[in-house]
């Protein structure tokens, strides 16, 4: 399952790595790629990962997930 998360508040390169690190901590997330250029995180995860968990992970790193598709 592939998901695209639009993130608000990213403004530096370490922001992107923080979000990546936080998303990868969710069990079931296989890969997370975050681009501060497009302000999007693209993740590869299994079905049981919920949008809620993803939102929380983004928030844990200090940013806001605006939309998940």
């Amino acid at each position: 399952m592939k998901k695209k998360i639009t993130v608000e508040g990213m403004h530096c390169a370490s922001c992107a790595t923080n979000i990546e690190r936080s998303l990868k901590k969710i069990s079931g997330v296989e890969s997370a790629k975050v681009s501060m250029m497009t302000r999007k995180a693209i993740i590869e995860a299994d079905e049981k990962v919920t949008d809620e968990e993803l939102k929380k992970a983004v928030a844990r790193a200090g940013y806001k997930a605006i939309s998940i598709e």
């Binding site: 370490s14 790629k33 681009s35 999007k40």
Partner: peptide, 24 residues
């Protein structure tokens, strides 16, 4: 979609820079 995905993809040469950024 493709372009956005490519933006987040990694170029191998940046590995070291990324590692350093992580602990920087």
């Amino acid at each position: 979609d493709l372009v956005e995905e490519a933006q987040g993809s990694k170029v191998p040469i940046q590995k070291l820079a990324d590692k350093i950024t992580n602990i920087f």
